[in-house]
Design a protein around this nucleic acid. Structure first.
Length: 674
DNA sequence: ATTAGAGTAAACAGCC
DNA sequence: TGGCTGTTTACTCTAA
């Protein structure tokens, strides 16, 4: 809610791209999640697919399938990241925003992402999902390699072999290949069912075609198989013929696997648990039918049988469909078996991921039930330093066991050590007044909200600047105004640290109030109150950045999440995914408003005087600034001057507020700003 | 080495 | 007169 300040300083945070000071000797910590998503990947061709340009060699075919498997994972990743991009509405944007935030992610092959990057990008569940996808991708890859070996063996031995034998083997191979594809489809459908992968249903065609990019297009299979059998294999005709069958529905495609004696998948009619597939298939189906009014395979008016999306009016019709289309036959049996494999694979993967999660949490000394620390590093974007000396003591005290915050608040002082940060960031003795290039900084409000109790009870200096704390105190109030004494009280109430050394920090508070133009003293009915000029606050520390990716990264890290998405997506889309970014896609106006601290301000000292705003970017220098600055000197006039509100780019809501509040209205824009 | 932001200390003035 | 509030200056430290 609160505007994310530009200058909150965070202690012991991963230090963005700058690492930490040379004195501390810390290594550059891996940047936070946002920074980790900069579009650094070259990206593979997203349009990889079965070009229907004719024949493919077996090697090409396998490579092609690997590419498709890769795409599956990538698309999955894309979806996941897009969901992450909008914490508020993950569901609603799953399919629509697939090309937005995750652009940078999408540009990177999942294999190009390090596990650390993955973790930074995705939340644990999402990460697990991605890992599952990638693992399955690996699984498919292995299977394909196996097939490849098989194929090579056949080819080598093929010449002396009789035609029939070779044909059978090829047929078996093709069936195995088909099963592989089915497996992929099953998994994709499975993911789709779980909402992990959003695929456009293609109602006109069979289920196979619902995976236009992720799986081999059925229409390409004949070509592929033709190419596969191209090396003078006599079975070419049959292959081609059967491949053509695949262009039909899934039923016809899979019915191709019907010949039992040449169908390796079907030759093993025993399930992993020893049950005959046939029996389970039938019994599962019938047992499901016993459920009145619903059926596990029926939902949203369509058949949920893997690979089947037949629309059914009602349950009765579905039952009919189930009995006719998915009766006990080889196809259903094979599909069931595939489904079991999918489930098994997922279970295995789940177990692995769970184990990994446990190990990770154990390594990080976290309780499994506390997800909060995961988010801490994101909040702990390094800001410009502050409270340096105390920061040192606070940060160092924890490793020494001197001060142990509540578990829920352990993160802010002992944040998760970023992989690249190591213990150096926490080692005792190192100077902790850290400042990063992240002039935009983390949300103090969320940080405080999460660790309110900790700061309240622990005599630890908060890792924020006086300015940010003062601002926070003011913004927390409904009126966005506080007297000096109220600010004092807020400090002492919120932070145990400020219950001592009152003279020092109170002096500092006063000093900051007077020093920073962002704090505006307003003569109120009840006396003088202090308000925050949010724009001045944001303007206070212009980033020393240029238009480099670092700029984007820093912008991202400093903006609040909501605004971040738009600008981030736009920026990333613009920089790394031009195809998705039509000229009108990126709104310069919004971008500028969202990123008020563009490098244009760098080097330009805060300019309160120019009334025409010519000496500074117009959007940043509304007359309000100068007025507000003048408020300090002439509060009464300032009130009058600000009353009309900022003419441009300065949202001035609540103009209808109480007279004494009209001076404080400028804080609201700040929220919108961030 | 330079620069800038931040913290600290202190002097000073005005007001109650 | 003393305390509070507010302003200003100087200095130090840290990080860019």
């Amino acid at each position: 809610m609160m505007v994310e300040s530009a200058s909150e300083t965070i202690r012991s945070a991963p230090s963005g791209q700058n690492g930490v000071g040379s004195l501390s000797g810390q290594t550059d910590g891996s940047s936070g999640g946002a920074t980790g998503t900069t579009a650094s990947g070259t990206g593979r061709d997203m349009t990889t697919g079965a070009d229907s340009n004719g024949e493919m060699s077996p090697a090409e075919l396998l490579h092609f399938q690997q590419q498709q498997a890769l795409q599956v994972a990538r698309q999955f990743l894309l979806q996941q990241a897009s969901g992450l991009s909008s914490p508020g509405n993950n569901d609603s944007k799953q399919s629509a925003s697939a090309v937005q935030v995750p652009v940078s992610v999408a540009m990177m092959s999942p294999q190009m992402l390090t596990p650390q990057q993955m973790q930074q990008i995705l939340s644990p569940p999402q990460l697990a999902g991605v890992v599952v996808g990638i693992a399955l991708q690996e699984y498919y890859k292995k299977q394909q390699e196996q097939l490849h070996l098989q194929l090579l063996t056949q080819q080598q031995a093929g010449k002396p072999q009789p035609k029939e034998a070779l044909g059978n083997k090829q047929l078996a191979f093709q069936q195995q290949l088909l099963q592989m594809q089915q497996l992929q489809q099953q998994h994709l459908l499975n993911l789709q069912r779980q909402g992990l992968v959003s695929l456009q249903p293609n109602q006109a065609s069979g289920p196979l075609q619902t995976l236009p990019q992720a799986a081999v297009c059925p229409t390409d299979l004949p070509q592929l198989w033709k190419g596969e059998g191209a090396p003078g294999q006599p079975a070419e005709d049959s292959v081609k013929q059967e491949g053509l069958d695949l262009t039909g529905t899934a039923a016809t495609a899979t019915s191709f696997a019907a010949p039992p004696k040449v169908s390796p998948p079907l030759s093993h009619h025993t399930l992993p648990n020893g049950q005959p597939t046939v029996l389970t298939s039938r019994r599962d189906s019938s047992s499901h039918e016993e459920t009145p009014g619903s059926h596990p395979l029926y939902g949203h008016g369509e058949c949920k049988w893997p690979g089947c999306e037949t629309l059914c009016e009602d349950l009765g019709q579905f039952i009919k469909h189930l009995n006719t289309e998915h009766a006990l036959d080889d196809r259903s049996t094979a599909q069931c078996r595939v489904q079991m494999q999918v489930v098994q694979q997922l279970e295995i993967q789940l177990a692995k991921e769970s184990e990994r999660l446990q190990a990770m949490m154990a390594h990080l000394h976290m309780r499994p039930s506390e997800p909060k620390p995961f988010s801490q590093p994101l909040n702990l974007v390094p800001g410009s330093s502050s409270f340096s000396k105390v920061t040192v003591s606070a940060a160092d005290s924890f490793p020494d066991g001197l001060v142990h915050p509540p578990t829920s608040a352990a993160a802010p002082v002992t944040p998760l050590r970023p992989p690249g940060l190591g213990s150096a960031s926490l080692h005792g003795g190192g100077p902790a007044r850290r400042r990063s290039s992240d002039k935009f900084c983390s949300p103090i409000s969320s940080e405080l909200a999460q660790n309110h109790e900790f700061y309240k009870n622990a005599d630890v200096r908060p890792p924020f600047t006086y300015a940010s704390l003062i601002r926070q105190a003011i913004l927390e109030t409904p009126d966005r105004q506080l007297t000096l004494n109220e600010i004092y009280n807020w400090f002492t109430r919120m932070f145990a640290y400020f219950r001592r050394n009152t003279a020092t920090w109170k002096n500092a508070v006063r000093h900051n109030l007077s020093l920073h133009k962002c704090f505006v003293r307003v003569e109120n009915v009840k006396g003088a109150v202090w308000t925050v000029d949010e724009r001045e606050y944001q303007k206070r520390r212009p980033p020393k950045m240029t238009g480099s990716p670092t700029l984007v990264k820093n912008m991202i890290s400093g903006l609040s999440y909501g605004a971040l998405n738009a600008s981030y997506q736009a920026a990333l889309a613009e920089s790394s995914f031009p195809l998705l970014n039509s000229p009108g896609m990126l709104n310069p106006g919004s971008a500028s408003s969202l990123l008020p601290l563009s490098h244009d301000d760098v080097g330009a000292p805060v300019e309160p005087l120019p009334s025409n705003g010519s000496s500074s970017p117009p959007r940043l220098s509304p007359p309000q600034y100068s007025h507000q600055v003048q408020v300090k000197e002439e509060p009464a006039e300032a009130e009058e001057d600000r009353q009309p509100g900022p003419p441009l780019g300065t949202p001035n809501p609540s103009a209808s507020g109480p007279p004494e509040d009209r001076d404080l209205e400028e804080e609201l824009p700040g929220e919108e700003l961030s």
